[in-house]
Amino acid sequence: MPQQDRAYATREAILRAAAEEFDRLGYDRTSLTAVLARAGLTKGAFYFHFPSKEAVAVALVERQSEFWAEVRESWRARGLDPLSALHGMFVESADRMAADVVLRAGVRLNADREIGYPGVPTSHVMWEKLVATYLAEAGERGDLLPGVDPDAVARTLCGATLGARLISSATTSCADFPDRVREVLRHVLPCVTAAGWKLSGSHKVPERLVEP
C-alpha cells in the first residue's frame, strides 16, 4: 500500500474509533487511551495525524458540516418540487445518521458545543430557516393549505426530528431514527399540504442504509 494511502487509512481509523467512543460516551468521558485501543494504534501514530483529542473532535464536526452541505446541494440539484426535496432531505439525513457513526458523532459533538454559546445562532436554528425556505417556496406554488405558516411548520418539523434523534440516540443508538423521522413526516405533511400535492416519485432514497 502506498505511503499516502496508509496515512489516509490511519487517519480514517482514528476518526472512526474516536467517533465510536464519542457517540457512546460523549466528548468529556472519552479518553485518548480508549480511542487508541479501539483503533489499534500507538500514541506516536495518533500524534502524527492529530495534536490532541480536541483536534479529532473538530475534524468530526467539520466532517458532518460538509455532509449537510452536500445533502442540501444534492436535493436542490434534482429539480424536484420543494416539498419532495424537503422530504427526501429529511429521509436521507435520518438514514445516514443511523448508518454512519462518524456523522452521528460529529452531530453530537456539534450540538454539545453549541450549548455553551448562548445567544449564538445554532445549527438547529439554521436548519429551521432552511426548512422554512423550502416551505415558503411550496406555499408560493400552491402546495400548502391556505393560511399555513412556513416558519411554524419548520419549527414543528425540526423540533420533532431533534426530539426523535435524542430519544433514538439514547435508546437504540439511532437505529430506529429513520423510522421515527418517517413517522414525523407522515403525520405532519398531510396536515399542511394542499390536496393537489403529491410526493414526487422521481427521487430515490434507500429505505435503510446499512453500515458496512
Rank of each mutant, 00 (worst) to 15 (best):
E140R: 13
A164F: 03
V131Y: 00
L135R: 00
R180N: 09
R182T: 10
P178D: 06
P150I: 08
C174F: 09
R141E: 10
F177A: 06
V181F: 05
T172F: 07
L130T: 10
V153A: 03
G139Q: 02
R165M: 14
C158V: 15
P150N: 05
A154T: 03
T156G: 10
L144N: 05
E137K: 02
E183T: 12
C158K: 01
S169K: 07
A154H: 01
S168R: 06
R141P: 00
E140S: 12
P146S: 11
L144W: 01
G163T: 14
R165Y: 11
A170I: 11
P150F: 04
A136E: 07
D151A: 15
L166Y: 03
G159I: 13
R186T: 15
G142L: 04
R186W: 07
A175D: 10
L189K: 03
A175I: 07
K129T: 14
V153G: 01
L185C: 09
C158H: 04
V181L: 07
A154S: 14
V131E: 00
C174E: 06
V181K: 01
T171N: 08
R155Q: 13
V131L: 07
H187L: 15
V148P: 01
E137S: 05
V188M: 07
L189R: 02
L144H: 04
I167S: 09
A136Y: 00
L145E: 05
P178S: 09
S173Y: 01
E137P: 00
P146H: 05
R155N: 12
P150Y: 03
T161Y: 09
